[in-house]
Design a protein around this nucleic acid. Structure first.
Lengths: 148, 148
DNA sequence: AATAAATACTTGCAATTTGCAAGTTAATTT
DNA sequence: AAATTAACTTGCAAATTGCAAGTATTTATT
């Protein structure tokens, strides 16, 4: 009953390690944080800096610099919004999309491999559980309020 | 079927935020990494530097310095092993144990709160699922081999 | 028994990453 | 029109990282 933390800690750490496997695609090497940024830009429709920085729970100044480096290696675009010129709209370049997709495929494959060690029934249960967990965390007062 | 990554990413990020809530106890303020070190030392029986560094997937040199700072604030002890003088055996001071316990309680409370948004049935299912997931990840070739 | 090799760390870098504070420019209030 | 707020950017300075090169101790080799 009271080994919850251990279970979670262990799972999260493992997933973190898995996550670290990412990030060299097409002769481009990117960091874990950078891959998260690509991921977040990819799944949104032309988000602003604020939006993504919030999603990643990063300081805007830190984020600003990270975006600069991603622009430098040609994965991300940043255009001032025509509606509000204070806002910069983020997007992925073709290469950025390619990299994001490659990482996505890689992660999917890893997850598939992990799920292959389960029965069909277990797979369904686990996925169902993670959904539940996410909903519960979203409802929770102690965590993750500003989340998608 | 292919939203696995999203589910995982979301869950892990949320848990990460929750985790960040840790770390100010008894006028002692510690970092997330430091809390993980306390946690790992606590759950092992007099581990060596290597063992904990491996568990945290940190470079030994980085870890060495982190231990130094934890010793400086009086949370961790480091004694050369009598059996093998190359090895340093790590432990928690009384204060270290207190801090570790406080964090533990805090995390448990957070998790309880999260689980309170579920039915009894769902709770059981989710815990069961996380166990399954951990086992599957342990079996996996792509992740987390050197893990407890 | 002496030398070589491996192990467990520590220290010296140098690079990266971080957040805060203080800016700039643009939009919104009053 | 002036003041406030919002969306960023830049200048620090501190913290964190890993690699390479060290030391000390133990194990293996000859």
């Amino acid at each position: 009953m009271e080994n919850k933390r251990e279970l979670f800690q262990s799972m999260v750490k493992r997933f973190g390690l898995l996550n670290k496997n990412c990030c060299t695609v097409d002769n481009v090497e990117i960091s874990l944080v950078q891959s998260h940024i690509l991921y977040e830009i990819d799944r949104r429709e032309w988000p602003s800096m604020q939006q993504v920085a919030d999603a990643l729970a990063t300081d805007l100044s830190t984020f600003s610099r990270q975006v600069q480096s991603l622009m430098k290696i040609g994965l991300v675009t940043k255009v001032p919004s025509s509606a509000d010129k204070r806002i910069s709209v983020l997007g992925l370049t073709e290469e950025g999309k390619k990299v994001a997709l490659a990482i996505q495929k890689d992660m999917e494959a890893h997850l598939e491999e992990i799920f292959s060690h389960m029965t069909e029934f277990e797979r369904d249960m686990v996925l169902q559980s993670i959904k539940l967990l996410n909903e519960a965390m979203a409802k929770s007062s102690v965590c993750c309020k500003p989340m998608y």
